[in-house]
Nucleic acid binder design. Structure first.
Lengths: 142, 142
DNA sequence: GGATTAATGAATTCCATTATCACTTGAAAA
DNA sequence: TTTTCAAGTGATAATGGAATTCATTAATCC
């Protein structure tokens, strides 16, 4: 099944309509797979292609896609949120260059020898790391 | 050396003046050690204690303290930045409850058996995790 | 077809943060 | 001490990302 069909199915299955703005936003996301886009980035690219989609709709659609697990929202050190396609539940994390802000992705098959292997693999000199575990605390988990 | 004296020294050593607003903000931070405060939190607590310090000054001071390594700025999933005292280079990370937003801290002596041990130690059901390594990429590291 | 509901988009609002700029402070020099 | 002046401050305006409002439009149901 094509990538776009699969996403369409997820939308429809969750009782949402596949509208033109949603399809257009989805196309932008697919065309720019691998990049980390802000809502405004997407809004601009739509405009550049001649499509008029309201910024509010872009925000709403991105939020919806996040809820459906189609997208992941990323927060780096600046104020904006960045979005990227979630590819088949494959976690991946980010190396963030303090100098040029370049973002390199890496997957997490192995958590243990992370630091050493990553440094070698990407020639990245790690000076700090931030880990966040998300989930439910003992008060909330039942 | 007292905590406050030590921080004072760091300021002066970096050629910054020890002004009243900076000292007051430092006191608030020390009084609330262990909490994650926003700029506005600090501003409010100063006001509640009868001190008038401009919000802009609070922001500037927090930024300065971050540069000097006195503070760490934390970005969680909401829009605000949170600040906490950096205690002697001891990394620690965060468990964030998706339900009540409670934040539990944990240290990182051992990276490997993290997930399991954390779940047990804190009764926290981990459903996702986010790791960011910060440093310098191969283009920037020399 | 008419009614009901979902979705859209322009504009507005919100809110955290940053910039501006005239004024004040405090520490070094006189 | 007093003077001096860069450093620092604070009221307010500006910014920018995100959320909200509401009138309009599109899709779906009976």
């Amino acid at each position: 099944m094509s990538r776009i069909k699969e996403i369409e199915n997820r939308l429809v299955h969750a009782k949402y309509k596949l509208t033109t703005p949603r399809r257009l936003i989805m196309e932008i996301l697919l065309e720019n797979e691998g990049e980390h886009l802000t809502a405004e980035d997407i809004h601009n690219r739509l405009r550049d292609k001649g499509y008029q989609v309201g910024l509010a709709t872009v925000y709403r659609t991105l939020e919806l896609f996040c809820e459906l697990g189609i997208l992941a929202r990323l927060n780096f050190e600046d104020a904006s949120s960045y979005y990227e396609l979630e590819e088949n539940d494959q976690h991946h994390h980010h190396l963030i260059c303090l100098s040029c802000s370049k973002i390199i992705e890496f997957s997490d098959e192995l958590l243990e020898d992370f630091m050493e292997s990553i440094e070698k693999k990407y020639g990245f000199e790690v000076t700090d790391h931030k880990i966040k575990y998300l989930g439910y605390c003992s008060d909330c988990s039942n």
